[in-house]
Nucleic acid binder design. Structure first.
Lengths: 248, 248
DNA sequence: CGCGCTGTTGAAACTTGTCAAAGTTTGTGG
DNA sequence: CCACAAACTTTGACAAGTTTCAACAGCGCG
């Protein structure tokens, strides 16, 4: 039964997800843990999960049990209003966390959807709380992560509340660029995983407005766009775009 | 020296701020603590601080050390952009927490200003972390509070991203009404502590637009406004206002 | 290889911002 | 306690930015 053995080997290698081997180390875990502490962490991450493009990691209304660390891939989170209006509240990439919104009511308050084939680590929340009672560093790191999310949200509020369309898009592109850079990718060239409509929803704009802003940036030599492929040509101008105008 | 004694008595009564006696109990603390646990909590709250209208509780850039529970009064938090643009990110009333944004970088990322004479309890953050390692309930409660803040921010993003002016104002008034109700005040009648400009900044609108929306609501019999005094006349219509239109 | 989804572009309509002026309230100092 | 100044609010007319509607192009998937 050679097949049986092969399957087992694969299964084992999938299940064995140890944080100690994970290259997200610096992104989703606190630094400076002792060897034993890292071993404890390994037990924390109960399971990995693969998602195909378009699949939901969780949906609003589902019972909350775990937060998720993106191991690879790309996600969006969105909130729906009864009348059908939708707002994308964020895009998450490798090393970022999903599900923090669920802690407050023990029910997820938004949907998380994979925008490309992705993989996540599930971190059962009660385990995380237990372990952070033992490991100060972990506790503090987790608090920082939650706080960072709040600060990030304030940035989005600023964007939605005070910026005009082109400024919003510039801010969006610069933010992506910076996050790709932090992950070792090119700061100036990347593929967008989301549609114009999803960008628009995130930025509080209609997809046509987003499209026009892209075209305008291209005309002015700030970027080169072709569908989902973006190349930033003049990052300085893009930054300056954001600190001039007034509106609102 | 009868004076000396009197002064001491006053000082003591001011310093003695014990959470166990605090009527914010249900709002800012976890329920179901044992007597000993509550006593430990009492030690947590190091100092109260009184602020006059217009005074800053903290400013963006200052070193973060404590979070604050509003004991009485009313606050706003705002973020400033280099080019002078300002965004009010929230209004905080009795029983709500301030300062969570500072955890992430150990530096406050926004300004907190008292909109009326107020009083807060300072909760040194390292103490809070220490104690929540001992008291599970406190730990979990704190995580819920942070998460709730994230969910709240998503609500604001929804508001800013998908609602038109009148919907935003309706949502704002309903939110205030609900929070006043939770504190035992009238759901239908209250004084606004903030200016039209501050409301506008929070809602991503110009003060003139806010003023016009107020007038329009008044014309249509939804509310009665006179300066800062608001009376909600038709809460149902106000709610319906938010689930009809489309925009953005 | 064609159908559908996604993206682009144009023109008109609508919402909100801008500028300006006048009215109202609040706070302060005499 | 009044008077006056400063801050805040309201309202109007006009301008600007964004959405809406519509038509079409392109790419990608089945």
């Amino acid at each position: 039964m050679p097949n049986r053995k092969a399957v087992q080997a694969i299964t084992l290698s999938v299940v064995k997800t140890a944080c100690s081997n994970c290259n997200l180390h610096e992104l989703c875990l606190p630094l400076g843990l002792s060897h034993e502490e890292v071993e404890k962490l390994d037990e924390l991450v109960s399971a990995r999960r693969r998602l195909k493009r378009g699949e939901h990691l969780y949906r609003a209304g589902e019972t909350f049990g775990a937060i998720y660390a993106v191991r690879s891939g790309f996600f969006k989170t969105d909130v729906l209003l009864e009348d059908g209006r939708e707002q994308v509240t964020g895009f998450q990439m490798t090393g970022e966390l999903l599900g923090l919104d669920g802690i407050s009511t023990e029910t997820h308050s938004c949907n998380a959807v994979a925008l490309e084939d992705s993989e996540v680590c599930a971190i059962p929340f009660s385990h995380l709380e237990g372990l952070s009672r033992e490991i100060h560093t972990l506790q503090h790191h987790f608090h920082k992560v939650m706080s960072r999310e709040i600060v990030r949200d304030h940035g989005v509020m600023m964007l939605l509340g005070t910026m005009r369309a082109e400024e919003r898009l510039a801010a969006f592109l610069l933010n992506l660029s910076q996050r790709f850079t932090a992950r070792g990718y090119s700061p100036a060239e990347f593929y967008l995983r989301m549609t114009r409509e999803e960008i628009g929803s995130y930025l509080g704009l209609k997809l046509e407005t987003v499209s026009r802003a892209f075209s305008r940036f291209q005309e002015e030599g700030l970027i080169a766009v072709q569908q989902k492929h973006v190349r930033i040509l003049d990052i300085g101008k893009l930054k300056r775009l954001m600190s001039h105008h007034t509106r609102d």
